[in-house]
Amino acid sequence: MEEQTWELRLYVAGKTAKSVTALANLKKYCEEHLKGKYVIEIIDLLLQPQLAEGDQILAIPTLVRKVPEPIRKIIGDLSNEEKVLVGLNIRPVNK
């Protein structure tokens, strides 16, 4: 698990304030906790609407943890760090 690369996918719809906030928050948390072992893929549903079905996306923005399994989803602008970390199952090392 330590060696695994985290594959995260963020679904957005255009550059809305919420999407921008969510992306900024996500980047911040990843740099803090998963430095060097994460990939973030951003999918803009306005450009690729057909992709929404696959991951059952309803809410925007939605963060999907593809790897490691199982799939986890976090919706919202990710403003609550504690919830995001719990949701992604990232336990801060030094806490």
Partner: peptide, 21 residues
């Protein structure tokens, strides 16, 4: 479908995804 167990809510969101689909 929404699997409640896999979803965590944090902060503001909307259902634009539904609209888009």
């Amino acid at each position: 479908y929404i699997e409640r167990s896999e979803i965590e809510e944090t902060g503001e969101y909307d259902l634009e995804g539904l609209f888009i689909r």
